[in-house]
């Protein structure tokens, strides 16, 4: 259990956290501004990954693929908002859950229909492969560092967007009083479509970036979606700051738990059993974390408003 191992695992945790943030920020914006619970957010993650894989394969350029992936996710998001989602704003949460659950089924099966059931393999471009040596002789893959960088850059950009621009002002106004921004003459319908598409684009970006690291397959968005829900419940629904801190917390706790809990149990149990006990506990760790946080802060760490 060396220091370099710890540093490397911390970086892995932060990398998972930044990707979770990309998912969670969209979810939390949509909930904060429109009051909508959207299960289909994981589908945008998948759409982004598939579009990136397909375009990268045909153009040979990962960057063009990435741009296509984000665009495709944003377009699909806008379309879904126009056709389905806007009918749901004034509906009970139960209807929102079911309609977006239906969207998951439609997107997953539709993707399977178009692309088949086998995973697609997407690789990062050659100039992003390989590793760098960090201080303390820790070797770390370049691509994962880039993911962390992208996540941080998006977090800063979102902060600037919301605090410094006209669109951001409207989003903030929408979060605090939906009736009022209508009275102020803001076109709410358009604002909602833009916010929804923005969230979808971020999810698509996350899907494409992670897809290049792992694989692109149907249903890839669902585990991430559930984690993103945990993130925004911990962070406080509607809060971007909460989403960022929640994402990092979940990323780091999850990663370190998976590595160190089995190692901890191995000190007094045979490896196979220790892995079983350790990884069962590790899998539950973030939910336990969530329960503890909610016990003290029922509305999450940074409840936007109530």
């Amino acid at each position: 259990m060396s220091v370099t191992l710890l540093i490397e695992q911390l970086l892995n945790g932060v990398q998972l956290g930044t990707m979770l943030f990309l998912m969670a920020s969209g979810l939390t914006l949509v909930f904060g501004v429109m009051g909508l619970i959207n299960l289909a957010h994981g589908s945008f993650y998948m759409v982004g990954a598939y579009a990136t894989a397909a375009v990268t394969a045909s153009t040979g350029s990962f960057l063009i693929g990435l741009a296509a992936g984000m665009t495709a996710a944003a377009l699909v998001g806008a379309l879904v908002e126009l056709i389905v989602i806007r009918r749901l704003y004034h509906r009970p949460h139960l209807d929102q859950v079911l309609a977006t659950f239906a969207l998951i089924l439609i997107f997953s099966e539709g993707t399977r229909w178009i692309f088949g059931s086998s995973p697609l393999w997407l690789s990062p471009p050659s100039w992003l492969t390989g590793f760098v040596t960090l201080p303390g002789d820790t070797r770390y893959p370049v691509y994962r560092l880039v993911l962390i960088g992208v996540g941080v850059a998006i977090a800063i950009a979102l902060y600037l967007l919301i605090s410094r621009t006209r669109l951001g002002m409207r989003i903030r106004a929408g979060e605090s009083d939906r009736e009022m921004i209508g009275a102020l003459g803001v076109n709410i319908a358009k604002l909602y479509t833009v916010v929804f598409a923005l969230g979808a684009a971020l999810a698509g970006l996350a899907g494409a970036l992670v897809g290049a690291l792992q694989s692109v397959q149907v249903g890839m968005g669902e585990p991430v979606l559930i984690l993103a829900f945990v993130v925004i419940v911990i962070g406080g629904i509607g809060s971007i700051k909460g989403a960022l801190l929640g994402a990092l917390l979940v990323g780091v706790v999850d990663t370190l738990g998976r590595v160190y809990l089995p190692l901890f149990f191995q000190t007094f149990m045979p490896p196979s059993e220790a892995t079983g006990v350790g990884s069962s506990l590790a899998a539950m760790l973030i939910y336990i974390l969530m329960a503890v946080i909610l016990a003290f802060k029922p509305k999450g760490l940074f409840a936007a408003n109530d």
């Binding site: 559930i226 945990v230 629904i237 059993e273 590790a282 899998a283 539950m284 939910y287 329960a291 509305k299």
Partner: peptide, 30 residues
């Protein structure tokens, strides 16, 4: 625990507790 919350929090907390049990069953080898 869950009924102390309402609305979307209730939905997500019941979901999260179920996921917790799901992951537990998934990784408990016995």
């Amino acid at each position: 625990i869950s009924l102390r919350t309402t609305g979307v929090y209730f939905i997500m907390i019941t979901l999260a507790f179920a996921q917790m049990i799901y992951y537990f069953a998934n990784s408990w080898p016995t």
